[in-house]
Design a binder for these strands. Structure first.
Lengths: 337, 337
DNA sequence: CTGAAAGCGCTTACAG
DNA sequence: CTGAAAGCGCTTACAG
């Protein structure tokens, strides 16, 4: 847009018979201005329809009041709803949100981070803790405050708003085992450079290993987080000679894909095989049978991440926040028959 | 972040033994710089880790290379995936995306528009064509280029990347009628200030009215676009004395909610009642029975909207783009029994 | 192809 | 509580 058409601070100053400094204060630090002056200025601003020029402000103050988020994909409702809350909280603090997606690709993520920072992001929201050294180096070099959501690490110098994926997966696996399942398979998301996926895999593996009682992880397939991939992986697993009685899926999309495929193939869930999900997005309630899954605090993470980042921008030293997960019992998990 | 730590154009200029003007050109209009100079500058930029200061650039050029989008909600996968493509296309043109949501509230939408524009958005993506005069006035006053997605109007001075909601609804209704249904009900989203919803309602009404043959719209309920609301509306409709043989839903979320509720109540779909959706989000394939619905070109709209906006920012006069919709036949619609 | 210099619209010590 | 003025880091006619 052309700012030439818009009034500037100087126009306001002239009309109000004060200096531009006073107008600036009236806008940014009203306490420091006499209340009558304030009133007069307010009216003139209103009348002229003045709004501060963004570039001028950013240049002079070294602040853009903008924050960036790079998420793997907006297409998964999970990230989208977390992002929504994140934005709402920021909005109340008059901070705007720049958004980009990485498609689960670390190079793309770095490109987007650079782009957002180059476009003035004062801080960043990132998903997951594992990333190439180059990315970490850039972040440190530029001293960008950032918070990491969807996972949690204690005793870290970084800031997290998330949950312990390993523990959540361990708990879920324990539930599956206690229900009597011994032959278990897993359909996971690609684990490379994705700590949420690899931690969930680890949680499942660890629990099965330590459980004893003949419990066994017969296979774990890594694939894309899509419905079709989940379906395909399900088919592969069910065509093998050695079949599981329960399949633990890395997220709800994969699980919903598996169930849909099972329905098409005439394989009864959970009578023939149990299936579990992860995330508890709305799909989980809709699919039939409804998914037994792990509820992940999506909205709470969005909110916590925003709060954390706001503090960071304010030069405070906040504490990472760990959020709880919970197993949601629905129909897709039952004792083996 | 503190830019004091970062090198400036002047630092680069000094190191390269040229003026800042030349560095600026090397970055923005490489053709205008001798290729040896260019090479030297590139190396120095690389070595110093220079990136242009956003505020300085925005102030001097009156351009932020940032565009804003205000969508009703990110929680509906439909908008989220359109937004994703929108962002990807912009990203290739080195334009960043500022995102905000309105929660289907026109006042919130206006606030967010003001905030994004105040934060430097050069252009805007908006959903739907109906909004209060105050909003339209603001947009015109500030001369913000914007494109409207998810709907289409011909012979308008505004720019659209979308489809004709009325016609799509008409076509779907025609399908339902041709299948033999005569008693029809509708579960729609709130129509006030939501042209997508009201146009879909109009399409259904019009077609039923002109169809004859005893066709009748026995009721149309307006509600929130949530699964539970869809379920509740379904229950209300099925408890009335006069029951429909088909229920047309304003979107897939509502339809999925209705089907899920039907399953819980033991009402067979489509044996007892047929149900149709709108949008064709992934829910539609997952729900059981799978939804017969209208495929809305989400990704194509995101792409078309980005292309349109890019042209607008480039001072071209592009044409609005109308995209086709298509009826997807699955299991939830069948002849009345 | 390159440079000197003005100017974009703010904020912020500093002085009063 | 207010003002004069420097300065933030770029871009862009203009001149050569």
């Amino acid at each position: 847009m052309k700012y030439k058409d818009s009034p500037t601070l100087e126009d306001v100053a002239r009309a109000a018979n004060v200096s531009t400094a006073t107008i600036s204060r009236a806008i940014n630090e009203p306490d420091k201005v006499a209340s009558e002056t304030q009133d007069r200025i307010s009216k003139i601003i209103e009348k002229l329809g003045y709004t501060p020029n963004f570039g001028g402000r950013a240049l002079a103050s070294n602040r853009s009041n903008t924050v960036g988020a790079v998420i793997p994909t907006m297409a998964n409702a999970m990230f989208a709803s977390g992002l929504q809350v994140f934005q709402e909280v920021l909005s109340e603090a008059s901070i705007n949100l720049l958004v980009a997606s990485s498609g689960y690709n670390t190079q793309t993520e770095l490109d987007q981070i650079k782009s957002l920072v180059g476009n003035g992001a004062d801080g960043l929201l990132l998903i997951g803790s594992t990333r190439p050294a180059e990315t970490t180096r850039f972040l440190e070099l530029r001293k960008i405050p950032y918070v990491i959501a969807w996972c949690y690490q204690k005793d870290s110098s970084r800031y997290f708003a998330g949950f312990d994926n390993t523990r959540a997966a361990t708990n879920l696996t324990n539930e599956v085992l206690n229900m009597g399942h011994r032959k278990i398979a897993m359909i996971a998301g690609h684990a490379t450079n994705n700590d949420r996926s690899s931690n969930r895999i680890n949680g499942v593996k660890q629990r099965i290993k330590t459980y004893g009682e003949g419990a066994e992880l017969i296979s774990t397939l890594e694939t894309d987080y899509t419905l079709d991939s989940g379906g395909d992986a399900f088919e592969v697993i069910m065509k093998a000679n050695k079949k599981p009685t329960a399949i633990i899926c890395g997220n709800d999309v994969l699980a919903a894909g598996a169930i849909t495929r099972a329905n098409q193939l005439g394989i009864k869930i959970p009578a023939h095989v149990s299936i579990t999900g992860f995330d508890d997005i709305s799909l989980a309630k809709i699919v039939s049978p409804a998914l037994t899954t792990v509820r992940v605090p999506q909205l709470e993470m969005g909110k916590a991440a925003a709060t954390l980042l706001l503090k960071l921008l304010n030069n405070e030293k906040p504490h990472s926040t760990e959020l709880p997960t919970e197993i949601i019992h629905r129909e897709s998990l039952a004792p083996p028959q």
